[in-house]
Design a protein around this nucleic acid. Structure first.
Length: 402
DNA sequence: TCTGGGGTCCTAGGACCC
DNA sequence: TCTGGGGTCCTAGGACCC
């Protein structure tokens, strides 16, 4: 989907079309004020001059999405708000509306599913589609079906997307970026040399900032540079698995199937504080946030019907170092108090002298709540009363951080 | 006034078991 | 005078993606 989060907002506020708009940060006073002051007019009639600007933004956070006009100023995803404000102070800034984004996400995916049912979910705004078996899927190399999908999505949501068609997921993903927004790109296996090799290594899905730096030190900058290396040389420099994969990827080879169903591995909640907090000096505040995160994870688990048995914490220090601790317990749970208790024990095992900027709680080793695995083991005969009716011990109301 | 939140997968060492 | 060889699970960190 093209500039998905921003495009969703533009559906509500069409008056912002063509303007630099960025989405990011949490809901702020300015956003509430905007709605309060214009409670009597339709959203589409709120004057452009009433919207909060990036220059007035104060706080932490990153840009989630920038509209194409904003991108012209060099503003882009994952950029810090403060840096973005310097590049484009006149941009309008809006918070992410997750409910609305999820609603449109479901809508565009169900629209595709009616046309081509073999879909792999890749997050809120992206999917892989295997349309090998879709009638007419091979017409014009797939372009006809891609056009049909684009039109259907636009009809049902008012949103545009870009589609890449290729023999595998790796190349299709790269192709989808060739012609944005609202574009279609068809790539064949024989196009790799001409169309893919000149691209920078970062364009490969799986080569990130760290690998890019390591490759640059070896004077490898383009995908073609990687393709020209002996596989063994790549293995020697990047390890057996990653090195071999890199070579395959550079040659456009990828045999991963489109995976239509998957079970979640973990669920987590984390939050970056408005200001860095200290475990002792800000104990009350931190404790409240901590409990809240545990309760939210527990709610997420229950809402989605899962239980887990590995409970962990994550924290980010003021210097951005990250520490994680986790502990596996002997039974599955989705109980907030249990999660709070175990996570609290994990917290005792990390250095709390430094100030923290982020705290997170995670539950892993998930099972469906209704699965046999998730059930407590049957009590052996004679069943001890306590085991048969075991109740997780409650955590006292005053939750101690230490 | 740098740098979100929710994920997956991989690696590597140690415990533990057969 | 040496101390095997799997296999699995747990834990911590890190790269990467959307």
């Amino acid at each position: 989907m093209d500039a998905f989060f921003a495009s969703v907002e533009l559906l509500r506020y069409p008056q912002l079309k063509g303007l630099p708009v960025v989405i990011g940060g949490g809901r702020r006073k300015a956003d509430d004020l905007l709605l309060q002051r214009h409670a009597d007019v339709p959203l589409g009639q709120i004057p452009v001059s009433a919207f909060p600007l990036l220059r007035d933004y104060a706080g932490r956070g990153v840009i989630t999405t920038a509209t194409y006009p904003a991108r012209q100023f060099g503003v882009g995803s994952a950029m810090g708000m403060m840096k973005a404000a310097k590049l484009c102070p006149q941009a309008i800034v809006l918070p992410v509306d997750f409910d609305e984004v999820r609603r449109y996400s479901r809508l565009f995916k169900s629209t595709i599913a009616e046309i081509a049912p073999v879909i792999e979910d890749r997050g809120v705004d992206e999917v892989y589609i295997d349309f090998t078996e879709v009638p007419g899927g091979q017409r014009e190399g797939g372009r006809a079906l891609a056009r049909l999908i684009q039109r259907a999505i636009h009809q049902n949501t008012g949103l545009t997307c870009s589609i890449g068609v290729a023999p595998n997921k790796l190349i299709a993903k790269m192709a989808s970026e060739f012609n944005k927004p609202n574009g279609i790109t068809i790539l064949y296996g024989q196009d790799v040399q001409e169309k893919i090799w000149p691209l920078p290594v970062r364009k490969i899905n799986g080569i990130g900032p760290k690998a890019e730096i390591r490759l640059a030190k070896l004077h490898l900058h383009t995908i073609g540079d990687i393709a020209a290396q002996e596989p063994q040389w790549l293995v020697d420099n990047f390890g057996k698995s990653y090195g071999a994969w890199m070579h395959e990827a550079a040659w456009g080879r990828d045999d991963r199937p489109v995976v239509t169903e998957s079970e979640p591995v973990s669920m987590s909640r984390e939050t970056t504080f408005d200001r860095d907090l200290h475990a002792v000096r800000d104990k009350a505040e931190l404790g409240a946030i901590f409990t809240d995160l545990c309760v939210q994870v527990a709610q997420d688990l229950r809402r989605k019907g899962y239980v887990g048995k590995t409970i962990g914490i994550k924290l980010r220090y003021d210097d951005f170092r990250i520490a994680t601790r986790d502990q596996t317990i002997d039974h599955f749970t989705a109980d907030g108090a249990t999660i709070r208790k175990i996570a609290g024990q994990c917290l005792k095992r990390v250095d709390l002298a430094r100030k923290l900027r982020l705290l997170g709680v995670r539950v892993g080793k998930l099972a469906r709540a209704d699965s046999a695995q998730a059930q407590p083991p049957a009590a052996s005969w004679p069943a001890p009363q306590a085991a048969a009716h075991r109740v997780e011990e409650p955590v006292p109301g005053t939750l101690d951080l230490f």
